[in-house]
Amino acid sequence: MSTTATRLRLATVDGAEVEIAPSHLVVAGYTGRDQEAVRHHIDELAAIGVPEPESIPAFYPLDVDRLTTAGEVEVSGSATSGEVEPVLIRANGTYYLTVGSDHTDREMETVGIQLSKAACPKPIASTVIELGDPPALVDWDAITVRSWVDGKLYQEGTLASMLPITQVLAEWDQIGGSADVALVLFGGTRPLIDGTFRYGRDWRMELQVPGRPTLELTYTVSVPDSARSN
């Protein structure tokens, strides 16, 4: 983990200012409820060279300096793409929910998933829903997420097919977490609408909790000229 202090200035949907200083960032993967389907997906990825995870769900701890609320992020290659995810923040004696993008280097993914995730910034929205401590009861299955790339719908649906992020957090705490640390947890994503990665420039993410204002995230990806693929 990075020892560099990372501070995020956020705001609740009610307008209150929030500042957090997370010490841990963890991205969870393979969080689908249908474990047979998850296993099938792992086998599909293994067939194209993506290493199998050590556990299901899988957990990828990253340096907290990967987190950003900036509207523009720089990546090191042209074959990168985002994925909409619920993000649970445990800090300041309470819990917050927001939306984030697990932006990932897809070429590097065949070398190692941990490396591919660490290669890209992890954008999150600057607006959060405060859940309290313990987290308020939320109908996770009713939450809807969507993502767009260059204006085209990329992902859409509810979180009903995924493990509730509070359950994912509980599994992480059993493996290597601690309730005493300030944590940002990405809770996994839905399948792509057409099953094909797109490497676009403009990304938009949305998370809707019934009865709450919609959480939105937008960001633009830039690639240095020296890193562009021919």
Rank of each mutant, 00 (worst) to 15 (best):
R7K: 15
L8N: 08
R9K: 12
L10V: 12
T12Q: 05
D14W: 09
P22H: 05
H24R: 14
V27P: 00
Y30E: 10
A37M: 10
V38N: 03
V38W: 05
E44M: 14
E54G: 15
F59W: 00
Y60V: 05
D63C: 13
V64W: 05
R66G: 01
V73T: 02
V75W: 00
G82S: 12
L88G: 06
N92M: 13
T98W: 03
V99S: 02
G100M: 01
D105L: 10
S116E: 01
A119Q: 05
C120G: 02
P121E: 09
P123T: 02
G132R: 09
P134A: 07
W140V: 14
A142M: 03
I143W: 03
T144W: 09
L153N: 01
G157W: 09
P164H: 05
I165H: 06
V168T: 10
V168A: 01
D173C: 06
Q174G: 09
S178A: 09
A182P: 15
A182W: 11
R190Q: 09
R190M: 11
L192D: 06
T196A: 14
W203H: 13
E206N: 01
Q208I: 05
G211K: 06
T214N: 03
T218G: 12
T220V: 11
T220N: 12
S222H: 10
V223G: 07
S226W: 07
S226F: 11
S226V: 14
R228S: 10
N230S: 15
